[in-house]
């Protein structure tokens, strides 16, 4: 049973790492600010979420898990809020999204 939990936690951790990597690549590769925000939210939700889930499995039923749950709760709320604030600020700063030329016609 312990080995199963151990392996499962590592699957979560590695999955989280992959999502973080994908998000980082997205930030570098996407063309404009608004699309990059999407990449950021991948890091926030799946990346951090999976890493925290993996750590919770390693922690077992203890105070550590409760603290990790609290961190997860914080992440869920602050992540989207920060992205929302950024997008709002960009909109107010009159930043135009890059649109595909074919769709404009």
């Amino acid at each position: 049973m312990e080995t199963v939990i151990y392996i499962l936690s590592w699957i979560f951790l590695l999955g989280g790492a992959i999502f973080l990597l994908v998000g980082a690549i997205g930030i570098l590769r996407f063309p404009d600010f608004y699309t990059r925000l999407h990449a950021v939210s991948v890091c926030d939700t799946m990346g951090a979420g999976l890493v925290l889930a993996g750590l919770m499995l390693q922690g077992g039923f203890s105070l550590v898990t409760v603290k990790l749950l609290l961190i997860f709760y914080f992440m869920i709320f602050t992540g989207p809020t920060a992205v929302h604030a950024l997008a709002q600020a960009a909109l107010q700063g009159k930043l135009k999204p890059v649109v595909d030329e074919h769709e404009q016609q």
């Binding site: 709320f77 602050t78 809020t81 604030a85 709002q88």
Partner: peptide, 12 residues
């Protein structure tokens, strides 16, 4: 205007 920020601010 930033309703979401205010709600989250109140929550936290």
């Amino acid at each position: 205007k930033l309703l979401i920020l205010r709600v989250i601010g109140k929550l936290f």
